[in-house]
């Protein structure tokens, strides 16, 4: 019983598309997140002087503090974008598959 459902899903034309596109999107997002995070950590570990500069004349806030705040925002923005993709692209594909199989 379980096997026939699995086979039905596998034969569904949209299943391969769903898996491929979702895997690609999540891998791209993961790579970007890793790049931002490791960029931040590597900079503070190996080039602390970059982060030590003030963001402009007359400012106390340093490049590092501002970057840190932006990095916090970037995490939330990336997650929101991913959810947007999922709702717009993957969920409709998934609904079609589930409707046809069950």
């Amino acid at each position: 019983m379980q096997d026939t459902i699995v086979e039905k899903v596998l034969k569904h034309p949209k299943y391969a598309e769903l898996v491929q596109r979702r895997t690609r999107v999540s891998m791209v997002f993961f790579a970007v997140a890793l790049a931002i995070y490791s960029g931040f950590i590597l900079t503070l570990a190996y080039m602390p002087e970059v982060f030590a500069q003030p963001i402009g004349a007359g400012w106390t806030m340093s490049v590092g503090v501002l970057t840190g705040i932006l990095v916090v925002f970037s995490a939330v923005i990336m997650i929101s974008l991913y959810v947007y993709f999922s709702n717009k692209i993957f969920d409709p594909l998934l609904e079609d598959i589930v409707k046809d199989v069950e």
Partner: peptide, 22 residues
């Protein structure tokens, strides 16, 4: 130590993209 506290916060937060995407 100012900035160093931010490092921990960002590390804890970046667990979430990992959880979400993987």
């Amino acid at each position: 130590s100012g900035f160093d506290g931010i490092i921990y916060a960002i590390g804890f937060l970046f667990g979430w993209p990992v959880v979400m995407f993987l």
